[in-house]
């Protein structure tokens, strides 16, 4: 398998991570299209010097979160433009899902959207059930600090859920 194919396989295996990050940092469909292009391009640029000391997921999280946060901050003031690709990178198949559950998932997404950029990143990692060590490696704060931040963010989310009832 050549480098190109290996890279695409890694991306495919971690498509869920990429989608969830893009979805959390961009509200509009057009912006999401721009952002995923930028993330994939930056991952590709970095793939040749990938440090296998870290897991693929850690490496992907770091790059995708860094690009998303920068993109989010830039987009608040400036417009960006994407490569004019005909197809979307993500494609969806229609599947049946419990309406009540779908509503709750959407609500959780809305609450996550309202968090500050770094809190949002920590929450996404917590929901993905990453342990404190991994979160600390990705975000760049101590494990103790990760614990403190998670507890604080969880409380915020629970209050939001309670208030929405």
């Amino acid at each position: 398998m050549d480098l190109n194919e290996t890279f695409l396989k890694v991306i495919e295996d971690h498509r869920g991570i990429l989608y969830k990050i893009v979805r959390s940092y961009c509200k509009s469909e057009e912006d999401r299209k721009d952002l995923i292009q930028e993330i994939i391009f930056q991952l590709w640029k970095s793939f040749k010097k990938y440090d296998n000391h870290y897991k693929y997921s850690t490496w992907i999280y770091r790059i995708a979160l860094n690009i998303s946060i920068s993109f989010y901050r830039k987009n608040r003031t400036l417009q960006t433009s994407s490569l004019p690709l005909e197809e979307n990178i993500f494609t969806f198949q229609e599947i049946e899902i419990d309406k009540e559950k779908e509503y709750q998932i959407n609500q959780l997404q809305v609450f996550i959207d309202e968090l500050k950029e770094i809190d949002k990143a920590i929450m996404l990692l917590y929901l993905e059930e990453k342990n404190h060590k991994e979160i600390s490696e990705i975000i760049g704060i101590s494990e103790t600090n990760v614990g403190t931040k998670i507890n604080r963010i969880k409380k915020i989310l629970l209050v939001k859920f309670q208030n929405s009832k």
Binding site: N4, F7, L8, I11, E12, R15, G16, Y19, K20, Q37, I40, F41, W44, L83, L85, E86, E87, N88, I89, F90, T91, F92, Q93, E94, I95, I97, K101, Q104, I105, L108, L127, E128
Partner: peptide
């Protein structure tokens, strides 16, 4: 658990358009 079910939904429904991703490279 809610997040897990979201993850499962994505796992089934989401796929990467490799040809488009290839263009980005």
């Amino acid at each position: 658990n809610l997040w897990k079910s979201y993850d499962q939904k994505l796992e089934q429904a989401l796929s990467i358009n490799k040809a488009t991703a290839q263009d980005v490279l």
